[in-house]
Design a protein around this nucleic acid. Structure first.
Length: 798
DNA sequence: GCAAACCGAATTTTT
DNA sequence: TTCGGTTTGC
């Protein structure tokens, strides 16, 4: 009726405000010291953020160099840079738009010498840390006290996120407790080793930057003066260290520092300077990273932290249909202690949410695959569809079925390129050159490829290095002086020589050539014999490893193209900080599979949220932790709100854990969605009330007469008399290799799960041949001939 | 020093 | 089930 005011704006309107609703405009235009934008899912927050930046630039309130915009992922940073670029053009290049981690690296590299590191420090990822931690736990014999490498690692990480260091923690530790004492020793030892290796772990990047600012106010002032506008995305996911970093940056500069010659600094009586203005964007309902230190209070208490802060709420959703939003609102409402917020849209109710209960996870996966095919035939492209799950292990059943059904898919954020052993080896070679103090890297390459260097020799080198106060790398130059066998001396001398040659290429005295990283890497891989060893191997996987290394070389070329001035250290930084799932562009034409966590920030036309079961979501472990169920609910909420038009919620009645099949129960979150929003193709009660051999657990979820699941609209089904055990196996994960099976239209086949059918057509070539089969009982399916569990019954006249 | 065989344990999320 | 880690035999 009267929602006209914000509908159309005359053409003299500000283009940056064009098409924005009133709260969005306010968020773009407000000027003040602190602004909190509470941005519900799909409320256009990136748009607001980018327009706000553009507006600051256009009005000359800020130079590009005065803007610091922080995101959590490289992908988000890239997207923001791109979108700001579309609005303001070239200027975007001068801004810092980066993740917390890369902003910190940039600062730390610049200031490393202030506190005993060099510019070329390495960054340890969690795998590196784990390797180091394993050794430390062993050396300290800490396993006797029940300390595990993983346990120590996560405790140290948590402490660092709370801005403790080893010494500050020791002062408050219960040192009477022997396990605690050992832990503290390992913590201290760990810190010492990192320092000696000239390395930071992920947590250090944040914490050490804060320490740096606190210890050297004149350094902090440089950045406080420089960044006049700080914008933080996904503020609900900040941890304490990140929060403190923002606090440090938004303090007023402490004093004017003037260089008065001879490197002396003089503090002048302070001239009142304004602190930088801070804009944060977030949604406490989407806080899903508490488990790794994110503190939701950072956003819920923002107004207390920054008195006078302005708060703008964005509740209008531009993504999903009202039914999907209703489901999401109904779920999240069950979290107590939350500011009420209701997403709404003017786009109409849309389709019902579809529910499905499979007998097994394969059955569930088959349903998903079938629906995907149905939608595909209806014109929805594969790339508009996504399948979510709580845990990575759930992807296996989906993959098995998708492969068989010839549904093209891609696992997002799965095994990472840079996590592969051969890539880490190659990078360790580069690190050994770039940062010779990094013993961990040198140890890693010591016997890769196999050179006959075992634990004994490694220990001897370590001993020699310690006795002579040398790094591992430096000790290699003295292979002849440690009483090693002739063979060991020879191979170590060779390794030392290759590293030297690579150093000449990568770190020449007169400045490196743009192609140096590529050349250096090739020198290392060839000269060390690493590639030769892989090529000589009979292991078929090694062939793929060679290809991966080729890919890495290609990455260095790409890097050189983008950064003609880029050094080996720049390259390693990029690699350490850029998870490769980030740069995999959405190839069109495939379905995306990912965990719910990975799904945050994305949106799809159609979303399948699978495994909506107790013990999965909420996850068994999380369900028992304080705040766990609430965080799991937010995770579920995040999943739901990714969907634009269609949402499928599916679960299975049984799930195989590791070989064992156990009964699953519908998730409690399912009950929180009003029954009239879900159209069950097959409800839990439906599946459960059939069959003779329901287990106790299955009976437990049987709905009361007329209960929620029972009353959902159902298609009439033919009665089944088979037992649950039979249902469980209705669709299996079985795979066979039919590599050479030839099929032609008209052939009759039998499928283990679907029964008999007739081949309509065969498409594709080689291993990718796909049979389109009309089954008598289950309709038409696509099958990948090579792996489908099928046999041919008759040939089309021999 | 190395590879195969064996055994036991542990299964969440990841910048 | 699969992943590591350890033991064993060469």
């Amino acid at each position: 009726m009267s929602d006209a005011p914000d509908a159309l704006i005359p053409s003299d309107a500000d283009p940056l405000l064009d098409g924005l609703n009133p709260p969005q405009r306010e968020a773009v235009e407000y000027r003040g010291p602190a602004l909190l934008i509470v941005a519900g899912a799909g409320s256009g927050k990136t748009r607001v953020l980018t327009h706000r930046i553009a507006s600051l630039l256009r009005s000359r309130e800020a130079w590009p160099s005065q803007i610091l915009a922080i995101t959590f992922t490289n992908k988000a940073a890239g997207e923001m840079r791109e979108r700001v670029g579309e609005l303001v053009g070239e200027q975007a290049a001068g801004m810092w738009i980066s993740t917390f981690h890369s902003a910190c690296v940039r600062i730390l590299r610049r200031e490393a010498e202030q506190f005993g590191f060099t510019k070329s420090f390495t960054i340890y990822d969690s795998g590196d840390v784990r390797a180091l931690m394993k050794r430390l736990v062993k050396e300290h014999e800490a396993d006797a006290y029940g300390l595990t490498p993983a346990g120590v690692q996560s405790r140290i990480s948590k402490l660092k996120n709370e801005l403790h260091d080893a010494d500050s923690y020791r002062r408050q530790a219960q040192m009477e407790d022997p396990a605690e004492r050992i832990f503290v020793e390992i913590f201290q030892d760990y810190a010492r080793q990192l320092r000696r290796a000239n390395a930071f772990d992920f947590d250090d990047l944040l914490a050490q930057t804060v320490f740096l600012f606190r210890a050297f106010p004149h350094v902090a002032d440089v950045y406080r003066r420089r960044f006049r506008h700080i914008l933080v995305d996904e503020y609900q996911d900040t941890n304490h260290a990140q929060y403190q970093l923002i606090r440090e940056l938004t303090r007023p500069p402490e004093g004017e520092s003037l260089d008065v010659g001879q490197g002396m600094l003089a503090l002048l009586p302070e001239k009142k300077e304004e602190p930088a203005s801070l804009t944060v964007v977030g949604d406490s309902d989407q806080s899903i990273y508490a488990f790794r230190g994110a503190d939701i209070r950072n956003i819920t208490e923002f107004e207390r932290d920054f008195p006078g802060a302005k708060v703008v709420m964005l509740e209008q959703n531009y993504r999903s249909s009202q039914n999907i939003l209703d489901a999401a609102n109904a779920v999240i409402r069950n979290n107590f202690d939350r500011k009420d917020k209701k997403l709404w849209t003017d786009q109409g109710a849309g389709d019902d949410v579809t529910g499905f209960t499979g007998y097994s996870q394969h059955d569930e996966a088959q349903f998903v695959a079938d629906e995907i095919e149905k939608l595909r035939r209806g014109g929805t492209s594969y790339s508009d569809m996504a399948v979510f799950y709580r845990t990575n292990s759930q992807s296996r059943a989906l993959e098995e079925i998708f492969i068989r059904s010839a549904v093209p898919y891609k696992i997002m954020g799965g095994t990472k390129f840079y996590d592969r052993a051969e890539i880490k080896d190659a990078l360790a070679y580069l690190v050994s050159v770039a940062n010779p103090a990094d013993d961990l890297a040198v140890r890693r390459i010591l016997n890769k490829p196999k050179r006959g260097i075992g634990a004994v020799t490694e220990t001897r080198i370590a001993q020699f290095a310690a006795d002579n106060d040398l790094s591992f790398r430096a000790a290699l130059g003295f292979a002849g002086d440690m009483g090693l066998g002739a063979k060991q001396q020879k191979v170590l001398a060779e390794l030392d020589a290759v590293l030297r040659e690579a150093t000449d290429i990568l770190l020449p005295d007169g400045g490196a050539r743009p192609t140096s990283v590529t050349e250096g890497l090739q020198k290392l891989l060839n000269g060390s014999g690493y590639l030769d060893a892989l090529r000589a191997s009979r292991d078929p996987q090694d062939e793929a490893r060679v290809e991966n290394l080729d890919e890495l070389v290609a990455v260095t070329r790409e890097f050189a193209r983008n950064n003609p001035e880029g050094t080996i250290v720049d390259f390693l930084t990029e690699v350490a900080l850029v998870a490769d799932s980030d740069d995999l562009a959405d190839d069109s034409g495939v379905v995306s599979l990912m965990t719910l966590h990975t799904a945050k920030g994305l949106e799809f036309d159609t979303v399948f949220l699978t495994g909506v079961e107790e013990d999965l979501i909420p996850h068994r472990i999380a369900a028992g932790e304080p705040g766990g169920p609430q965080e799991e609910r937010r995770l579920f909420y995040v999943g739901i709100t990714r969907a634009r038009r269609r949402l499928f919620l599916s679960l299975a009645m049984t799930r195989a854990q590791f070989g064992e099949v156990s009964a699953a129960m519908p998730s409690r979150f399912l009950q929180e969605i009003p029954a009239d929003l879900i159209a069950w193709r097959q409800s839990p009660g439906d599946v459960n009330s059939r069959g003779g051999t329901s287990s106790r657990a299955l009976n437990a979820i049987r709905p009361r007469e007329g209960g929620r699941f029972g009353q959902a609209p159902l298609e009439p089904k033919k009665a089944r008399s088979a037992s649950l055990a039979e249902f469980t196996n209705r669709v299996t994960g079985k795979v066979r290799d039919n590599g050479d099976l030839e099929l032609a239209p008209g052939d009759r086949i039998r499928h283990d799960d679907f029964g008999e059918g007739t081949v309509d057509a065969v498409t594709g070539v080689g291993a990718k041949r796909i049979a389109h089969v009309r089954f008598e009982e289950v309709g038409t399916k696509k099958l990948l001939i090579k792996v489908a569990p099928i046999v041919r019954l008759t040939a089309d006249e021999g």
